[in-house]
Amino acid sequence: MLDERELATRPIVQESVQHNARTVSNIRALTASLFGVAAGTLGLESFPGFIFYAVGTAVVSVLIFAFKAESNPKAYFWRPLQDLWAGDMFGGLMSFVLTWTLLYNLAKA
């Protein structure tokens, strides 16, 4: 109910919301496979690998916040906590695991 009032008084542009979500998820997918490359090259196993992924995703969130959202995520994301910081955190996990295992086998075994 609160959201509805908020949307009626300050409407948002659906097209921009979609564009932003697509941009962020593209960045996440690309960087997730990069983190897999790094984790596999370093030879991380089990928990350290996933911790590495979490730290890397947080760093990418900060980079988007600083360079793309101009330190003002409210202007570009409807719910910044969900769309920028926490959401999509696990979207790139599968590509991370894919390149992680591949590079681990290439560089280690």
Partner: peptide
């Protein structure tokens, strides 16, 4: 990571 973030398209403001 910095390069990927910088080379992605600009975000668009969502407030009408």
């Amino acid at each position: 990571c910095v390069g990927v973030v910088l080379s992605s398209p600009e975000l668009k403001p969502i407030q009408w």
